[in-house]
């Protein structure tokens, strides 16, 4: 029934999982954009035209992937906790 699912979505556990999954994409993009912007402004300020933009763009991409890694680790941890609640603690 539709309303049962609606209440399930309002359950905190599901809200938490949906939010974490929904957040991943923009976390990667925003870190990349901030890296690019920082490099661009530093280049304009210091007059080292193409170099700092590239370096900071790469740093931004790495930071974005680090964000994605942290978010997915959070999702996995929640999943493990749920499994432990349901099937008892895991031996790995």
């Amino acid at each position: 029934m539709f309303f049962n699912n609606w209440f399930k979505i309002n359950d905190k556990k599901y809200l938490d999982a949906i939010s974490t999954a929904g957040v991943i994409g923009l976390h990667m993009v925003s870190a990349t954009v901030v890296g690019l912007g920082m490099g661009w402004y530093l280049d304009r300020w210091l007059g080292t035209k193409p170099w700092l933009t590239g370096v900071f763009l790469i740093l931004g991409i790495v930071a974005g992937f680090k964000n994605v890694w942290l978010d997915s680790r959070r999702l996995l941890k929640a999943q493990d906790k749920e499994d432990a609640e349901r099937f008892g603690p895991k031996d790995r």
């Binding site: 957040v23 923009l26 976390h27 993009v29 925003s30 870190a31 954009v33 901030v34 890296g35 920082m38 900071f56 740093l59 931004g60 790495v62 930071a63 974005g64 680090k66 964000n67």
Partner: peptide
């Protein structure tokens, strides 16, 4: 240090834009 700086600065940006 620059990595963390970038990802911390990206936080308000992603909060706003989302």
């Amino acid at each position: 240090l620059p990595l963390e700086l970038i990802s911390h600065t990206a936080r308000p940006l992603s909060l706003t834009l989302r």
